[in-house]
Design a protein around this nucleic acid. Structure first.
Lengths: 231, 231
DNA sequence: CGTGTTATTGATAGATCTCAAAGATGGTGG
DNA sequence: CCACCATCTTTGAGATCTATCAATAACACG
């Protein structure tokens, strides 16, 4: 957690790809460090979008609340991922709330600074365009799933993605490496925690996953994929 | 349909906003005109993303097909809107198929040309970033609706948006100005044409809308909004 | 006027939510 | 160190929304 703020931190970050060392130093110079304790919030839905961030360590959950109070998980953010992108793409307020799932470390740039950085290093804007484009396609894929797939498949898809994004190999499979509740998965897939629990129980019986409190291990990734793709 | 290719055509196009006349001319010089007859397709899902486009006149439908053959409408494109954005944001293939709903006219730029234009006029990349960011937020809103709202509300939301995007004032309300089927609306809202038909019939009885073959008139926008927002 | 597309409507089945209750789990304070 | 408590999870039963199946009707076009 005492990680140095040097260029290496920006190495794997898409939005700063292909920048030379001088540019990276320039970027780093205007960055702000920010620690976020588990459960703490970086920004809230509706707040003025003052800054954008890159997660250095930890894990964040970005979620939206509906007027009726239902939560929808937008995405989980892992190391090297951007969040608060709206501050880059021109939005005025954050469309969601970012909360740390575990103790985390982020670096952020004030909105104005971001503008200046993009002016000085046009590559950043192009990279950002790519990242936001990718997110758009992912989100579109979610729309497709929600529109056409039944709950069980959607949950399978969600787990497959989580495994790819945050899977840690363990003895008997791949474990999602941060605490995640049935409720979280429900909010990722547009269902209820009850249905998620039932589904996971079923899969547990079929040796596909193994559950626990805020814990999921994928034991049979192939079977999961089969459910996800309806083979 | 015999519209001149002069700068005025790029006036209202977000991605070319704030460019000076010289830049606009430069952009225009490398543009390709393309007519699309109703029912014709500009590009297909999975095709290499060779170009991005701006619609000048007409109306397009962008849709994705699932492996099972179900359609999902990504969005309807109206005049001055971009489509085929992936060619700008770095995707390699088109994620959807663009089909003309009515006879249309578009202008397009080859992918390489787009890159060069962004190099010469960095403003374009920034504008594109804004547009793609907006689309991301819209798509995220759709995810939220699909996750938390019942069919009737989703249909109401879809109609409200269609009214805003393509509403033409008529005698007894606002008409969606292009032919749109119940099936289309179903594919926009993740339901079936049957449910859409039933819902519209119900609303027709309550004087909220008035239907017809490939035709919808919103008679009581306030009532529709009330359904959409569950007031 | 025939034909293909689009729309309407009824009946039924099934997936999933809602309501309800009890059981686990792990952290915390006394 | 242990009991307690908040949170998370599981599971059953019933209600409900919506898809599916099926048939007919309306419409537009050539």
């Amino acid at each position: 957690m005492a990680r140095q703020l040097d260029r290496s931190i920006l190495q794997g970050v898409d939005i700063f790809r292909d920048l030379d060392d001088a540019a990276l130093d320039d970027v780093l110079l205007s960055a702000q460090r920010r620690r976020i304790a588990a459960g703490e919030t970086v920004f809230r839905q509706g707040d003025t979008a003052r800054a954008f961030y890159v997660l250095v360590e930890g894990r964040l959950k970005v979620a939206q609340v509906t007027p009726e109070g239902q939560q929808v998980v937008v995405r989980f953010i892992g190391p090297n991922e951007m969040f608060g992108c709206v501050a880059v793409s021109g939005g005025t307020v954050y469309p969601g709330t970012a909360t740390a799932v575990v103790d985390s470390l982020a670096i952020g740039w004030h909105r104005d600074m971001t503008e200046r950085l993009m002016d000085r290093h046009p590559r950043i804007a192009r990279n950002a365009l790519g990242t936001v484009g990718d997110r758009l396609q992912e989100t579109q894929a979610r729309v497709r799933e929600l529109s056409t797939e039944r709950v069980e498949r959607r949950i399978a898809h969600a787990l497959v993605r989580l495994g790819a994004q945050a899977g840690k190999p363990v003895q008997n499979g791949v474990e999602i490496e941060f605490p995640i509740t049935r409720q979280d998965i429900a909010e990722m897939t547009g269902t209820t925690l009850h249905t998620v629990s039932r589904t996971l129980s079923d899969w547990e019986g079929r040796q596909i996953v193994q559950g626990g409190r805020q814990r999921i291990v994928i034991r049979d990734a192939a079977a999961l994929l089969k459910i996800a793709e309806e083979l």
